[in-house]
Amino acid sequence: MNIFRFAGDMTHLISILVLLLKIYATKSCSGISRKTQELYALVFLARYVDIFTEFISVYNTIMKIVFIASTLAIVWCMRGHRVVRRSYDKELDTFRHYFLIAASLVLALLVHEKFTFQEILWAFSIYLEAVAILPQLVLLQRSGNVDNLTGQYVFFLGAYRGLYILNWIYRYFTEPHFSRWIACVSGLVQTALYADFFYYYFLSWKNNAKLKLPA
């Protein structure tokens, strides 16, 4: 465990907690893409199937449970909670995320470490995580201005991926046979998706203006 990975896990956790806070405090989920949350729930369920078979560490197991539980809680809240679901931008959150699921599944069947059920699911979860933010970014583009909690949510998610890339670089130089090219390539793609958001986020922060994304 290196500092980059630990910091990455913490910012990932913070991003989910910020989202839970926003929904719980404002009893509103406007500006949040439910499809992105459903994709993340799928990512964690597909990736953590080994939670019962492979014990790596207490930290690892606890974090997996927290990620699955919090993401499912967000999805449940956005679907089931009477008050919250009324504020869901149904007509704006129209990204056809089933294509993302299908594409990730096909890619996982083609490119994986080993052709076993668990490996295919793991590769699927890695590819899906890379594109899961797309419905959220499209929703932000459409809704134009971004309320600061949602902006912070995407910011922390981007920071988590950026820190993980530093973690992979660190591990590449410190561990002789570290090979995680599937996650590295996919992680780079995902971080690139955030790049333009970071650019506008930084501009809005610098000009102390509301975050406006170009339509």
Binding site: R5, H12, I56, N60, H177, S179, R180
Partner: peptide, 10 residues
């Protein structure tokens, strides 16, 4: 092995 393949990551 898990660590080498990065499967020890979240």
């Amino acid at each position: 092995l898990l660590a080498l393949l990065g499967k020890d990551e979240l």
